Amino acid sequence: MTYHGVLTKMQTEFSQPIQYYLVFENDFLNMNQLLDKTVSIRFVKFQCLNCGLDKPIYRQGFCKSCFFEIPQAADWIMRPELSTAHLDKEDRDLDYEKKVQLQPHIVYLANSSNVKVGVTRKSQIPTRWIDQGAHEAIEIVEVPNRYLAGITELALKDHVADKTNWRTMLKNDIADEDLVVWRERLMPYIPDEAKVYFIANNSETHLEFPVHKYPEKPKSLNLKKELNYTGKLTGIKGQYLIFEDNTVFNIRANEGLVVDISIT
């Protein structure tokens, strides 16, 4: 059976283990049901997630012109401390920026390859942790806007990592950490403006991923270069498909690619 559509990040359902869904315009796949089956992926063309044109994808599923124009790809997306909607100051589209920035945000600790600090909208918990492949996470601050979350993350970056090592995460070469202890250790470094929003009495969230076999030496599939790939699916973690031959395919990093997916 063959499915056709443009790749967007897999939708998830928080259960034990996490349930993954690849959603196309007219169809969807429960990826968990494909474990231990042979999956073929073929690159067809590009389709920018904004303008819909067949133009090379630049970043985040957008062509280059859209990336530098639309509010969904502005700098404050990746660097929340640059948010200005709370000042009524526009970057690219103030209405959009107010909608996204002026809502509750969480600063959290997650353990995927190591303990790291991150920021997300409250509505994206636990989705954000799932997408990062974190097997445990904890909320440390809940603030009313993106700017406060951004300056808190920035302050904590001096004392804890803010990046995930994707190879370590996929190999599952990770140690359990006491994130409550980490939270207490980092509390003194929270900026004064955000200290009142510190979360003192919550516990860790634990996540289980549908993986039958972890790769020993993960190698990333470049579908734009290879054009076709076939392999036996043995796991899903973060936004990665994991195959028996150690190949891994990052769905999130390939948003905007139109593909055919066949299952045998």
Rank of each mutant, 00 (worst) to 15 (best):
Y147S: 02
D88K: 06
L154P: 03
I70P: 00
N111P: 01
E90V: 07
K98F: 00
K116S: 08
V117G: 05
R121D: 01
T84D: 02
K157T: 13
K157W: 05
V100N: 09
K157L: 12
D95Q: 14
Q103T: 14
I77K: 07
L154K: 15
G150L: 09
S123F: 03
C66W: 05
I77W: 04
F68L: 15
M78L: 13
K122T: 07
I130H: 03
I151V: 15
P104I: 02
D131L: 09
A85K: 00
Y108H: 03
E90K: 06
G150C: 13
K99H: 11
T152G: 06
V100K: 12
I151H: 09
G133R: 04
F67A: 09
N145H: 10
P71D: 00
K89I: 07
I130W: 04
Q124D: 13
R79S: 11
I106H: 06
H135A: 12
L87M: 07
K163N: 13
I70N: 01
A73F: 01
I125Y: 11
K122N: 10
Q132L: 14
V117E: 04
N165S: 14
D95E: 14
Y147A: 03
V117C: 09
T120Q: 04
P80F: 00
A137Y: 01
P144I: 09
I77Q: 06
G133E: 05
S112R: 09
A161I: 11
T127C: 03
P126V: 06
L156P: 06
P71C: 08
D158R: 15
P144G: 10
I138Q: 02
A155E: 09
N111H: 01
E90G: 01
V119E: 00
A74M: 11
Y108I: 03
T120V: 06
E97I: 08
G118S: 09
T120H: 08
M78S: 15
E142W: 04
D88S: 08
P144L: 11
I106S: 05
K116G: 00
V141H: 03
S112M: 07
L154N: 11
V115H: 09
V117I: 13
I140C: 05
E136S: 13
T152S: 12
I77Y: 10
Q132N: 13
P126Y: 06
P144F: 12
D93I: 04
R79Q: 15
A137H: 01
D162H: 14
V115R: 04
P126W: 05
L109G: 02
N165D: 15
L109Q: 01
V100Y: 14
Q103H: 10
Y147D: 02
E90S: 02
D75R: 13
F67Y: 15
H86D: 00
R128Y: 04
D158G: 15
Q101C: 11
N114I: 07
